[in-house]
Simulated assay, not measured.
Amino acid sequence: MNTLAPSCGRPRILVVGQDPQVLALVTEEVAACGLDVSGMTVGVAETASSGAFDLVAFGMGVSAETRTELERMISAANPDARFLRTYAPYAASQIVAAVRQPQASPVDIEAYCRRIGYDGPLEPTIETLSALQERHLAAIPFEAIDVLLGRGVDISPAAVDAKLIAARRGGYCYEQNGLFKRVLRAIGFDVDGLVASVLWMAPPGAPPPPRTHMVLRVTIEGAPWLADVGFGSSVPPAPLRMDSSEPQPTSHERYRLLPIGAGLLVQVEIAGEWRSLYDVSPEPLLDSHYELFNWFAAAHETSHFRRELIAARITPDARCTLLGNRLTIRPAHGEVERRQLDADGIERALAEVFHLSPQPDWRGMVERTAARGAFP
């Protein structure tokens, strides 16, 4: 059946993919949820694009060019049709969620742009992505003070917006990249959330830790870009091409992404030496998957966020990092400055360097940090 006829007012759903067997699995599961659904391969969909559809879901195997053309053709016959890009293992749940919860968690783009000091274009281009990433990193510091205080971290959209935008706090990867993902999607970018195993500062020969670091893949005109605003001291200051292993210059260091196993190894060049940051899996995740990772980072006894004060901020001119009581300012060009701070100095650095407002109930943590000193 090539079109979806209205059925008792139910949304008419079309699933477009490459593999007929996978299409059958997905459509059967969606139909079992009581929804009106049909599946078509790309070739069939191209000849049936005038059908009446409310939601069209594309598999990841459908190229960006084909998807764009099909969206244009389907929109001509169905101006109100919505489009969804899915990943086969989660496709049925993504489709059902899109029908039952059609509106993604809203984000106030104007408030976000004010927060990061951005007043430029908001088209889904690499120029916009680069500008937003640069401004985000400069305006919203990396920090996990709530974890250190034993409060945990709520990564729901409402909580993140209240903290990072309204309260002008910082956050760690699930907050930072979760917010950035919603902003980019609201603008019109094609964004996937991924997960990586952090290798930064790991001793040689150490087994890789579990994948817990959230990063983003942004696809622009068919090209995949890595975007990360939540890695702290060595975060890439600009989007990085994921389909090239050549060194990529930025306003600070050079980076490269090397194929390794099924994923990509992200490295940064420091003093002529390539050092590994993290190993990224290409499999896109659902937002709900990050809840477990967030619990681990915030609550597990081995999480370094529970033991040490960490803050970071990067501008085009310098990287600023606070590890314990050691403040490091690394200019893009020039000598590195390092200082050991007392408690008052830590509070001043949090305010003046990282643009945070130290709260009275932070003082005990600050004093303990000053007494303990910098961790290795």
Rank of each mutant, 00 (worst) to 15 (best):
S105T: 05
Y112Q: 06
A111Y: 05
G120V: 14
I109A: 02
P106C: 03
D119R: 15
A98Y: 01
R115M: 03
D108A: 01
A92Y: 02
C113P: 10
A92T: 03
S93A: 15
V96T: 08
Y112V: 06
D119T: 15
D119L: 15
V99M: 03
E110W: 09
A92D: 06
P106H: 07
Y112A: 03
G117W: 11
P106S: 04
V99S: 08
G117P: 13
I95S: 05
V107E: 14
C113Y: 14
G117N: 12
R114Q: 13
I116K: 01
G117S: 10
G117M: 11
C113Q: 15
Y112D: 08
I95Q: 03
R100C: 09
V107H: 11
I109Q: 01
C113T: 15
I109F: 00
E110G: 12
Q94L: 12
P102E: 00
R115C: 07
S93V: 13
A97F: 10
Q101H: 10
A98C: 04
Q94G: 02
A104F: 05
S93K: 13
E110L: 09
R115Y: 10
A98I: 02
A91P: 05
Q103I: 09
A111S: 10
V99R: 04
Q94N: 08
Q101E: 12
G117R: 14
I109G: 00
D108E: 03
P106V: 07
R114H: 12
A91F: 04
Y118I: 03
A104N: 09
A97V: 10
P102F: 00
S93R: 15
A98N: 02
Y118M: 01
Q94V: 12
P106E: 07
A91S: 06
C113N: 15
G120P: 09
Q101K: 08
E110N: 11
V107L: 13
G120I: 13
R100A: 06
G120W: 14
E110S: 14
A98P: 07
G117F: 12
E110F: 07
I109E: 03
A91T: 04
P106L: 06
R115F: 08
A92I: 01
V96P: 02
Y118P: 01
Q103T: 11
Y90T: 12
A91Y: 04
P106M: 06
R100F: 12
Y118R: 01
A111W: 04
Q94S: 11
R115T: 10
A98T: 02
Y118H: 04
A92E: 01
A98V: 05
A111P: 04
A91E: 06
S93Y: 11
A98E: 03
A98F: 01
S105C: 03
Q94C: 09
D119Q: 15
A97L: 13
I116L: 02
R114G: 09
I109M: 07
G120H: 13
A97P: 06
D108C: 00
V99Q: 08
S93P: 09
R114P: 05
S105L: 05
A98D: 02
E110M: 06
Y90V: 08
E110R: 13
D108N: 07
Q101M: 08
I109K: 03
C113D: 15
V107R: 13
S93F: 14
Y118A: 00
D119I: 14
P102Y: 00
R100Q: 10
V99H: 08
P102C: 00
R115L: 02
Y118N: 00
